[in-house]
């Protein structure tokens, strides 16, 4: 069993109006030091033992569906997890 954590974020070159709004909100709350906020997505995938190439499969699904390479980057962490 593997637990995979996938993080999808907007590319640096892409403006993030949501992050900008949150940053301005933090600043109006008095947190002047928060220079920038970028909002992304976090997903947890559970793989069973039938998947032999976990890393290859994760890359594949990230590119095919979980992220849109035109505007987003992804990274992932793979953890071995014990059977429930």
């Amino acid at each position: 069993m593997y637990k995979v954590k996938v993080y999808v974020t907007l590319r640096e070159s892409v403006l993030d109006p949501q992050g900008k709004a949150v940053q301005q909100s933090l600043s109006s709350l008095g947190y002047q030091g928060v220079e920038d906020v970028r909002i992304g997505k976090y997903m947890e995938l559970q793989f069973d033992d039938s998947v032999t190439d976990v890393e290859g499969t994760v890359k594949e699904v990230c590119e095919k569906l979980l992220s849109n390479p035109v505007i987003e980057d992804y990274r992932y962490e793979i953890e071995e997890s014990a059977k429930q």
Binding site: L10, V14, L15, P17, Q18, A21, N68, V70, I71
Partner: peptide, 17 residues
């Protein structure tokens, strides 16, 4: 059509959200 690659580019949230 953008997601399927039939057209180039992508959509972001409207500038004013």
């Amino acid at each position: 059509l953008l997601e399927s690659g039939l057209l180039p580019g992508a959509m972001l949230r409207n500038k004013n959200l």
